[in-house]
Design a protein around this nucleic acid. Sequence first.
DNA 1: TTTTAAAATACAATCGATTGTATTTTAAAA
DNA 2: TTTTAAAATACAATCGATTGTATTTTAAAA
Lengths: 341, 341
Amino acid sequence: MKKGKITIHDISKELGINSSTVSRALNNSSRVTQKTKDKILKKATELGYQRNSLASKLRTNKTNTIGVIVPRISRQFFSSVISGIEETAYDAGYEVIICQSLDNLEREQKLIETLLSNRVDGILISVSTQTLGKDDFNNCKQNETPIIFFDRPYNIEENTNVIIDDFKAGFEATEHLILNGCKNIVHFSGPQHSELYKRRKNGYLAALKKYNLTIDFNYIIASNLMKSDGIENAKKILDLSKVDAVFSANDVAAISAMIYLKDKGVKIPDEIAFVGFSNEQISAVIEPSLSTISQSDFKMGTVAATLLFKQIEQKTTIKEGYTKILEPKLIIRNSSQKIIL
Amino acid sequence: MKKGKITIHDISKELGINSSTVSRALNNSSRVTQKTKDKILKKATELGYQRNSLASKLRTNKTNTIGVIVPRISRQFFSSVISGIEETAYDAGYEVIICQSLDNLEREQKLIETLLSNRVDGILISVSTQTLGKDDFNNCKQNETPIIFFDRPYNIEENTNVIIDDFKAGFEATEHLILNGCKNIVHFSGPQHSELYKRRKNGYLAALKKYNLTIDFNYIIASNLMKSDGIENAKKILDLSKVDAVFSANDVAAISAMIYLKDKGVKIPDEIAFVGFSNEQISAVIEPSLSTISQSDFKMGTVAATLLFKQIEQKTTIKEGYTKILEPKLIIRNSSQKIIL
DNA sequence: TTTTAAAATACAATCGATTGTATTTTAAAA
DNA sequence: TTTTAAAATACAATCGATTGTATTTTAAAA
């Protein structure tokens, strides 16, 4: 057995057939007769031939590979999006390279560089929370490598984005609480520079307005929505009087706040009702189970991937500022259903 | 601006310096003077040059890339292992390609093929539950591509494996329950062909023996340990008399059983105590919080990756049947602590 | 049997970077 | 100024697969 990898030239030599014919046979070209194909394929398996994708990709200038960057693969939402992307890619004949930025900008930039130098045909990304600039992804554009942003919108005027209707989600979550008898609803918001959290907040405000509830800006608590922030927020709630509900812009903060409040003897949902955001796996398991917003994650993956493949294959210049907005879905569980007397 | 990607030849032409010198300058070779390097680097950034890794990898016959295959990236344990791998790889200058098999053998085989044809330098894999054969990975060996198995051992006699001491974990979990006053301990076991589940079971049996408790094989319930299996198992428990504890070979089944039993009015841990396995994220959040075994996940990643890099760089033939066994850690939470009168 | 068109296969260049060897340049010594 | 060794740069082959064009083979028609 020859050491090292087998190439088409090895097959070529063994059979006395030119390597171009071997290549065509392996790619099932109509320019090679079935008889020759059979001979070549047999020899290929016999030698344990395995195409060198690097050479093929270099020559054809097409990798049939896309890169996906998310903050963390462990988060339920992202892994569902990735599943959606992978299914779509699988059907379209693309390979997928999954990367996590750990919400770190420097790392994210490095990943982009790596993906570009590996000549991916396109990139799907949910940007890190540190990504604030307007032209962090110029290297892609310079390269004419299509890039599509999902979940966390990025410079909507100039890029392709796939997001959910955060305003509507915020509105529906809040309205649901109001219809369940809540009147003094606190909102846990995220970093205020983020468009996404602004929209959720605006949805919240619009719902209060619709039902003529007083808007108290002390009731809007901004934070990074981490576990510890939830606890801090919960402490603040205990200082505010009359709070009877919380709409949190993510599940993590909602859950840690709930646990803290329960520990302090607060009855949930009867004294304080909760609605979260994201439909993390834990939200179904915690007690009481947390009502939340599902971001149609799998679908977001398929939609983003489909858009990307279209851009890659049409090779059209990317239409600036196209945004696809998906519908959110309110999932009603126990944390928001008060016993209305 | 030239359309398409910039190559070293473009830089070469622009500056009238041969492309070999350009290549050496970009790789910071000592054969190029600093003055020339500066000129070349400046022009490279000016033109937006980006190395074509495909060409480089093809020429050098080294990709500095490893592939990682896990059943699902969303599972807490696997994403932690991956983090461990990525950190180690980052330090060692390797890229990581993450793939999920979805516990599907066909898909797993396809991923292996793709990784090999992309000429990864090595592979880390936690095999799918469908992978039962003894030589599913011959294509790697034929290729002389190192492959290391983690978490789920595979053909221990012939391959490199990184696993935890499942026997010890089973023993400690069971002993912990015994020391908390439990005498009639049910064991939820997994598919009986699996070495891993056999070892956990043997640990359980050894603990019973050590404390002179009767071994009743009706108390060992085998299943696939999915959510639904947990519920089925819980029903069976209700039919058995005297059960006062459960040691489950994973958290998922333990949790669904707990929820079912709680619903039926069983007090946990006072009537039936629980210990799970894996330390899934949910296990800390459920009520009562679930005692479980931590599989030193992050460390498993670093250890497996370190081993792999060693194999890649030494280019030694893979020593057959080397198994690295990591220590498990019992995490005691509320589900296992009875009030002993 | 010779001619000819179609089918099959071979030739050779190419993708972009790397690298051993050859050549040129530089600068010090003769 | 010429010689010479060292430093710097250029030449050319190479990694493995692909593909437009050229050549050969096949088989039918003349």
